[in-house]
Write a protein that binds this DNA or RNA. Sequence first.
RNA 1: GCCCGGGUAGCUCAGUUGGUUAGAGCGCCUGUCUUGUAAACAGGGGGUCAAGGGUUCGAAUCCCUUCUCGGGCUCCA
Length: 650
Amino acid sequence: MSSQITITLPDGSERQLDQGATVGDLAASIGSRLAKAAVIGSVNGTERDLVWPLADGDQVSIITETDERGLYTIRHSTAHVLAQAVLDLFDGATFAIGPPVENGFYYDFELPDGGTFTPDDLERIDARMREIIKEHQPFIRDEITEAAALELFRDHKYKCEIIRGAAEDPMSATETGLVRTYENPPQFIDLCRGPHVGDTGRLGHFKLMRVAGAYWRGDEKNPMLQRIYGTAWPSKKELEAYLTRLEEAEKRDHRKLGVELDLFSFPEEIGSGLAVFHPKGGIIRRIMEDYSRARHEQAGYEFVYSPHITKSNLFEKSGHLDWYADGMYPPMELDGGTEYYLKPMNCPFHILIFGSGQRSYRELPLRLFEFGTVYRYEKSGVVQGLTRARGFAQDDAHIFCTLEQAPAELARALDFVLDLLRDYGLDDFYVELSTKPETKAVGTDEEWEEAIEVLRTVALDKGMTLVMDEGGGAFYGPKISVQARDAIGRTWQMSTIQLDFQLPQRFDLSYVGADNERHRPVMIHRALFGSVERFFAVLLEHYAGAFPAWLAPVQVRVLPVRDDHDEFARELVTQLKSAGFRADMVVADEPLGARIRKAKMEKLPYVLVVGDDDVARGTVGVNPRGGDVERDITIENFIARLSADVANHS
RNA sequence: GCCCGGGUAGCUCAGUUGGUUAGAGCGCCUGUCUUGUAAACAGGGGGUCAAGGGUUCGAAUCCCUUCUCGGGCUCCA
């Protein structure tokens, strides 16, 4: 009879441990560094606490703080400490759910009499949390009956809802009649599936970030709870790195850069969510649009235009008024009682263009493109800079084709958008596939399945990583959307491609086939920027305002050293302009250093300094953004260099 | 729309427990300086303190309403 048990590790090796050994003991037997880094273990595929006793024959892997699951455990345990602190400090407070999330955790609370947390409260809570951490309270797992749990949590109505199964909490799996809890003695206990760190002393590298409102169970009809968000990391270094990253992101916030670089603004006189583009922003935008137009022309798209307002019946027919009337600006009523709406989208107009005459299969695929300005009455709380505006231009295309042509057209459209996004400087993508919404959808399940399969096949054929987004489609069809990572690793939803069998039916579209019979076309909705304004914002943040030469509002600034170099500088600017570049100069009214500094703060790609030597020899001093100063460069060489930058989009 | 926190000069901000004509830096204008690679010097103009109402002898400051911005929730055709 052996007093040893045998454990199998992930690499297939085996280890002998004493009877009763725990996950933590196993980690310690492998090495002290592992024991220190260990957070939880995976025992036969289930995550367990470090104090979990092992049995002979278990397959175990040690999960450390560098593993995502380990990190999530640290965050989850920190959320428990937050809850303990709040319940401790606020009489009558009750708690709901508190999961780990990306970069941190949150916990939802309800304070008596509709109370709310203040920033000062956060400091007090933070201080109490650090005391709890110092106390090294263990996390003790238990399983109790539902009746016992209801008694234990009788003062906490949200917990009781979870125990009864009336509300879901991903963190507290309950089974029939059995409720799992974790206790931090002496006084805190929470419903929880676990696992958790060994004791609260394992935690500490956290920061409470903000207070926010959040509806119970995410439903706006439910009471609003007070949510406290925090961030938590395995080490101080990682916490600080995260906070630094937040600062970086804040520095490149397009709303801030838009003001600093004088690109656009949101005058209060116009209204929330409605932007004006200033001259410099206008140049960038115009070049973005011009390039897009040129590429669309090459790719066989035809350009159309449609008005900004339409009679209501158009959107009744399309179905948009059924689903999105709340999101539209209210109608203008004319004398005869006719209602006109600002258009929230362009599809029905393009459909009318398709339907304006009898179409032959020979005309298909018909690809209609428009920079169509649309207006959506976004709820006041969601408007955000250029990324969520109330008026914006879509680079909207609708491709009408036969069912048979659809897969090839979709593949072609996906290639096209990826290629074009790369030209704008984004090159790290994955694809999301959004399926039928639970409510808000028209068409049969079979039609939807068919369309989803087509999209799935197209995305997978491109070798793209595919992430499912269940229920995220438009009401008329599923969509694939390209997600792009920017320079600091954030992902943005960019282009969408949607396959639609519904609107052609609603508008009774047809074409005459080779068999001389009428057939129903299918429709592909496709936007590359989605919204020109939003794409502008993404690029602005991606480049942190340092636009590549092809997009930069001013590509070259010429600075004469003294005012007797002004004439040479002026001629140089004229020469650059006639070569097609955007150049300006700043006369020598203030020291060169000051003028250089201003140009750098404007993030210009090139500053040219011209002085005595340059006037004598016809050269320039080149000060490139992010590079070293080069002297005595001939004008020809500089022009060749700038031309190459523009051509390469670099 | 809901919860929390803001709104002072073009920008970034200061403005004690309510107390004279509301300040600074940058930017802007004028003058001086004549400059070789990230801030020359001097002077000047600029704010009905988001708007409206209230409390008070007195409001940028306290209260209410509206507008608006930020962080979240919900939403995003």
